[in-house]
Design a protein around this nucleic acid. Structure first.
Length: 303
DNA sequence: CGGTTGTGGCTTCCCATTTA
DNA sequence: TAAATGGGAAGCCACAACCG
């Protein structure tokens, strides 16, 4: 008996199973879509491997030996398991207890994770989401090692070998408390904007200049930034309770906020948000389902 | 050095025939 | 009547030789 599975043709197990069921080499061959000699040859190899006659020839076909009867159950089980393994994985969101790790900025938490959680509570209440900080230099390694499942980033932060799905394009607006004297005006000049105190959100947290200041400089202008934050979290509340202005992504303005949105007389570039993931999760059913769900948040809104 | 091609050995198949 | 066997064909794979 050869114990080395690397030298064993697993197709022989299918032949064994057919021989056992049909108790005839000819009938087994018909079932396997092979010729009788081919199945006879397979039986010969099975006999060599198991060091047993397995099937004894009789008047009307073949009779399994004691050893063949012992092997029948484990081989049937093995073939059944293999059959199940080959079937496409059916993912049932409402039963799933899957866990996903997503890297997201506080902006992405507000714009993507928040609506995502609302959908998950209705469709997949047992799925768990862990939101982690975005570390742009580490994203590829984190996705490759499985430390992250997804990252919500801008196209500039992704890696060419990662899969990417575009979610939406975002533009900047200027926001101020709705009782501010400027909030009543219809038209504001660039000079008007430069006379106001600003709060700026910067990833560094201690920067008082950003893309807006660079654009103002090209017009020979500058503004006064009196507060620099590293997070958008308290920005709406801050604007509603002070005289500060902020230039911020449009999706961060709450519906019920006491804020006035003003047009900016300055061409600030828009930015894009996308979902990225690694190839090793690309065909994984739960990942596919969650990607489709995240994609639907903005795809459905665009309809 | 890497890619392509030719060759030989091995395995598995089928057809024809023999054997139980 | 059905299984086993012999001979030949086809396909696959490893390896060596060749080429750019």
């Amino acid at each position: 008996m050869d114990n080395d599975i690397s030298n064993f043709d697993l197709n022989l197990l299918k032949a064994f199973d057919a021989l056992l069921d049909e108790q005839s080499v000819t009938a087994a061959a018909k079932r396997l879509n092979l010729t009788q000699p081919a199945v006879s040859g397979m039986l010969s190899r099975l006999r060599d491997h198991f060091d047993d006659q397995l099937f004894i020839r009789n008047q009307r076909g073949i009779t399994p030996t004691k050893r063949a009867k012992e092997l029948s159950l484990p081989i049937k089980q093995l073939l059944n398991d293999a059959k199940l393994m080959m079937q496409p994985v059916v993912f049932e969101p409402n039963q799933s207890t899957a866990q996903f790790r997503i890297a997201a900025s506080d902006y992405a938490i507000k714009t993507v994770i928040l609506p995502l959680i609302q959908l998950l509570r209705a469709q997949a209440p047992h799925i768990r989401i862990a939101v982690l900080d975005v570390e742009p230099d580490q994203i590829y390694a984190q996705l490759e090692t499985g430390a992250l499942d997804f990252a919500l980033v801008t196209p500039e932060q992704t890696h060419e070998s990662l899969y990417s799905q575009h979610l939406f394009e975002e533009h900047y607006i200027c926001a101020v408390h709705q009782q501010h004297e400027f909030a009543q005006r219809h038209q504001l000049t660039l000079a008007d904007f430069c006379t106001q105190p600003y709060v700026l959100v910067s990833q560094q947290g201690d920067a008082f200049q950003g893309i807006v200041d660079q654009l103002l400089a090209t017009h020979g202008l500058q503004r006064e930034v009196v507060l620099s934050l590293h997070s958008f979290l308290v920005l709406p509340e801050l604007l509603a309770s002070t005289d500060l202005f902020a230039i911020m992504p449009s999706r961060l303005i709450p519906q019920d906020a006491e804020l006035k949105v003003l047009d900016i007389p300055l061409a600030i570039p828009t930015f894009h948000k996308c979902l990225v993931w690694h190839a090793h999760t690309h065909h994984h059913a739960p990942h596919q389902w969650l990607r489709q769900l995240i994609g639907s948040i903005y795809h459905d809104l665009a309809k």
